[in-house]
């Protein structure tokens, strides 16, 4: 029970870190996060079932996630930010459609079952082994995102988010920065998918659901945009609340929608009343009342 919760907490924490990379650090509204997650989970499942060794599966999975990010970047990144949001949402829906419809590869609505655990963790099999494995991948994700955040590249992303024109004036390409941010975010989401598929050993098309993306947005907003530590606490805290809601004794036809409605309402209220987040509040550079920075052009329009 606790070990299962730790797995889910790790997975959501990784996904929140992935969203933090695109939205928190680079200002890209990656609403297709669940699609990347599902792609990573299915990629892991298919390759592991095919007998690939763990390192090869993980490497292929990261490449797959990055490639998906590149695919999404193509039609949307030269356009305004809200276009990326809706194309990304469509990308997530399309992923779910493909997973549901391409029966021969994905098993259709039934999903993939009996995904073998990675060899290195086989000797600590069972729920505890799965939890340790998921935590290990989370540690990797934390190390990578925190390293990126402190690097010159992380600063470039912040500059792209806050003032794209300035970045251009400095001779850097905001477009390249955005494309790579989306690829990295895709790879990290796929890593979350790998953690999920290996630890739970079962995947289904519902992973690509819109609702998963919304949950991660809530976790990131709660944690505070741009903060690695806040993302981890936000993702884990979200799962803790989910688990707590499971304890309420109601039929699943009620708890499912009620939980989603509760989280949806939380997202609305946080955005309206505490847009800077709770765990690690986002600080300077934000206008009052804005969860996300306005572009420099918008600020200029207001003046």
């Amino acid at each position: 029970m606790i070990a299962d919760a730790v797995v889910l907490m790790s997975v959501y924490a990784i996904l929140t870190l992935a969203l933090n990379l695109s939205l928190g650090m680079a200002g890209l509204f990656n609403l297709g996060l669940a699609g990347f997650f599902a792609i990573g989970a299915y990629g892991t499942g298919l390759l592991a079932i095919a007998g690939w060794p763990f390192p090869a599966v993980l490497a292929a999975d990261l490449v797959l996630g990055a490639a998906a990010g590149l695919l999404l970047a193509f039609p949307s990144l030269r356009l305004r930010g809200d276009y990326l949001a809706i194309v990304a949402l469509g990308f997530g829906q399309l992923t779910e459609t493909v997973l549901n419809s391409w029966d021969g590869l994905t098993g259709g609505a039934n999903g993939l079952d009996n995904i073998p655990a990675p060899g290195a963790f086989a000797h600590v099999s069972g729920p505890v082994g799965a939890a340790v494995f998921a935590l290990a991948l989370l540690a990797v994700a934390v190390a990578v995102t925190e390293g990126l955040r402190r690097s010159p590249y992380g600063q470039l992303l912040g500059a792209v988010r806050d003032d794209e024109v300035l970045v251009q004036a400095l001779g850097k390409s905001p477009h390249t920065a955005k494309v790579t941010a989306l690829m990295l975010s895709g790879a990290l989401s796929a890593l979350g998918g790998a953690a999920y598929a290996y630890a739970i050993s079962y995947v289904d098309p519902g992973l690509a659901d819109f609702q998963t993306s919304v949950y991660v947005f809530l976790a990131l907003l709660f944690g505070g945009m741009g903060s690695t530590w806040g993302s981890v606490v936000g993702g884990a805290g979200l799962v803790a609340v989910m688990e707590a809601l499971q304890l309420v004794n109601l039929p699943t036809s009620v708890t499912g929608p009620a939980q989603e409605a509760f989280f949806a309402l939380s997202l609305i209220l946080l955005t309206l009343w505490r847009p800077q987040g709770v765990v690690a509040p986002a600080g300077a550079g934000r206008r009052a009342g804005a969860a996300l920075p306005a572009t420099a052009a918008e600020v200029a329009e207001d003046a």
């Binding site: 809200d82 997202l267 955005t271 206008r287 572009t295």
Partner: peptide, 13 residues
Amino acid sequence: RAGRLTPLLTAIG
């Protein structure tokens, strides 16, 4: 007045 992306958060909510 909070920029173009912030209302998307309440919208998906």
